[in-house]
Design a protein around this nucleic acid. Structure first.
Lengths: 126, 126
DNA sequence: CAGCATCCCAGGGGATACTG
DNA sequence: CAGTATCCCCTGGGATGCTG
């Protein structure tokens, strides 16, 4: 397809209020699931291989045990992560990512990309 | 480069605490800029061509004039959007996106994509 | 139309201390 | 280590009504 025609189609898609509404709805759904300051950093940390409570905590600047505890509980309930009790002595707890959790990978990647570019811009002088 | 070597490198990058820290920092920076329920939907709406206050308001389910007003003001101050007064009679106001604003495009796209897949999954039965 | 002013509140989130 | 428990605060955000 010629680029011109493609642009025309894109314009039609965007100008269709039905589609716009669907997209904004999808966006708000995602925002709802990821609401709050901590879910994405936690997902990122666990996907990066951090399994232990302390490790996750240390890997996220600013988070408190309280918030981490609350979020981990909620995210476990929502099947975002898996909590495993390892019956060693002493008992160890491990948090691991689920497929559902990893489905946020692209979003996180884009946000990291944006954040890095942002820093770069600040350094090079606005 | 062979895929194997690439994976090895990716593993090294991830296992390097220095990089992990940088990434989580970038992620948190982005989260900070986009904090709250409304900034992304507003950016999306304006990038979709909505210019007038009422149009933007109508395009975002659930938003109140108060929040829209507050966010628009803040986002204008932060150069995220441009506010133009058109000296017609009656006077009209137009909000338009800036380059900075459009730099969130990929993030929004990914979130819309996720939201749509999510809905799809719910429909087909978890 | 494009907002501002008020009132009000839940709950997100911080600090700190404590437990098995 | 892996959390709970309290206390407390702030502010994001809703509802409603009013103005130029």
């Amino acid at each position: 397809m010629e680029p011109e025609k493609r642009n025309q189609m894109a314009a039609e898609v965007l100008s269709n209020p039905r589609n716009q509404h669907e997209e904004i709805q999808a966006l708000q759904d995602t925002l709802y699931v990821l609401g709050g300051k901590w879910k994405l950093p936690i997902i990122n940390s666990i996907c990066n291989g951090n399994k232990r409570f302390r490790d996750i905590e240390r890997s996220i600047p600013g988070i408190t045990t309280r918030m981490l505890s609350k979020e981990l509980k909620e995210m476990t309930a929502n099947q975002l992560i898996k909590r495993t009790v390892i019956d060693d002595t002493p008992v160890a707890i491990e948090y691991t990512s689920t497929e559902y959790c990893r489905s946020f990978g692209d979003i996180i990647l884009e946000m990291i990309k944006w954040g890095k570019q942002h820093r770069q811009k600040l350094k090079t002088g606005d």
